[in-house]
Each structure stands twice: as structure tokens, then as C-alpha cells.
Amino acid sequence: MSILLIAEHDNNKLNPVTLSAVTAARQIGGEITMLVAGSSCQSVANDAVKVMGLSKVLLADSAVYEKGLAESLSALIVELAADYSHIIAAASSTIKDAMPRVAALLDVGQLTEIVGVESEDTFKRPIYAGNAIATVHSHDAVKVITVRASAFDKVEAEGGNASIDVVNVVFDMGVSRFVSEALLKSDRPELAVANTVISGGRGMGSAESFNLLEKVADKLGAAVGASRAAVDAGFVSNDLQVGQTGKIVAPELYIAVGISGAIQHLAGMKESKVIVAINKDEEAPIFQVADYGLVGDLFEILPELEAKL
């Protein structure tokens, strides 16, 4: 078996989700070749060779690949595909755009966002928005796979010693053109799409004490939310409200501070991957859904948390 793994990057640095995809690839087994396609992306290739477990890095460096447009990127991958039994990558928006094209052009099915590797041709993947997990088996000679990065540990980014081969084929399909992009500022992401959310409730006591929350949020690159009680009490505006009648969020990490955990609040955040509750009332219902609970005075805990992050 031999695996072609597509690197995720910004032409400057390797994105850590790639390291999770390498783990998935290693579970499948066989030699792993990583493709770095981009523009002026030598530094990414230099990162890539150090990743544990790779035998080779292919560098396709051309202005055409700068923005990872699906038409050109998929043509490049298909051109290289003949040597591999598996083509795999972390399910980034670039890969989600390009990989199904690769599968179609190879006349094979695609396995979307796998969360587990059972064998070289059998995988687990979530369906129905994660409410069920399907075990799926591929009959195709080439397996085209995208990986849900959060389901796999990352391999070591240092210690590897792969060689770099330069790929000179360039596919410019000429039918789509990059116009512009507007990347969200990372310091305070939008509540609905943030990876981390820290919310305050009635226990915050005042509008001023939300500053404590914001300082922690800044450290984490988190969005700030609030319970309905905090909104009702006038501490913050209602566009920050998380809950059944506010925004529904499902971040990687949700930190509930001074929130008792009324059911309508839980409805807005219970799908979060990891939930932390900080509350002085150890009987607060929020602790029943929290993965990690910390009982104590938030006015002491928040500054300490900010200092230690």
C-alpha cells in the first residue's frame, strides 16, 4: 500500500490538521507521501519533511496553486494518483472542495470525514450530523478519503527525515479565478462559528465583570456568550445570548461561567465537544453536562485562569 496525503497549509506554515491526517494514514499502513501544492511554499515543504512517518514530500510550487482552487488542485492530484492505493487529507474547506472531484475523475467513491480506521478499506464515519456512526467499506481500487482531524491525534511535527521531490506539472483549468477573500479576525470570532466560547451568566453579577470574561476570551481567541439570565439582567446585549431562544453553538470548547444551566441554555450549547463549568453553587445543573467542573468564586478563578493560559 502507498498513500498520497495532501498537506493543508497557507503557503507559509503547515496546518496542524495535517498531522492528524498523518495519524489516520499510519493506521491504514504503508508508505506515506505528502503533497505540498501551493505558491512560494518551500517553507511548508521544509516543515513537511520533519513530520514523523513520511517517506517523501512532493512539492508542486506554482502561482496556479496559490489559493488551492479545486479545478487545478484536483487535476494535479489525479495526475499523481496512479502510484497510490489511498489518497487522503484532512477535511479542510480546500479539501472538501477538491477531493470529491478527484474521486469522480478517478471513477471511485469518496469516504467523507472518517473518524476511525478499521482496516485498509473499512472506516467509520459520522452520518446524520453525528447522531449515528456508520462503518463503511470501499470496493474501489483507489480509496479517496477525507479525515475529521479532531478524531485523530497528531503525529510529531519534528524528527522525520523525508526527501523533497519537485513536481513540475501545472494544471491551470482557466475556468475559475480568485477574486478576493475576507478572513475573520482571529482575536474575537463570531459566536456561532467560534472554536471556543466562554459564556457568563447571572453569577457574573454585573456588566463590568464581563471584562474578566473578555480577558480570558482574548487569551483563548474565544467568542463571548451569555445566558438569558445575564441578558435579562442587562449585563450584555441579547445578540450574545446562547440558548434555545438565542444562538445555538457547538464549539470544541465551551466554558460556562456563573451559569446555572437552565434547560433552554443547555439546548444552545450541549453539542459542544468539551464543556467546562465554573460556578460557586456546586448543585448547579450545569455540572451535570460539564466534562470538567470547577466549584468556586469566579472572581478569583477568572483572573487566575487568564494569568495561567
Partner: peptide
Amino acid sequence: EKNILRGEDVRARSADWITR
């Protein structure tokens, strides 16, 4: 002890969601 609230812990609650 944890199931009886006094003072500020009671004041922090409201029994009327309209007047708050």
C-alpha cells in the same frame, strides 16, 4: 448548608421575569 441560600444569593434571583 448548600441547599439554603441567603443574602446576595437570594437577591441575585428574580421571581418576576417581567419586572426583573
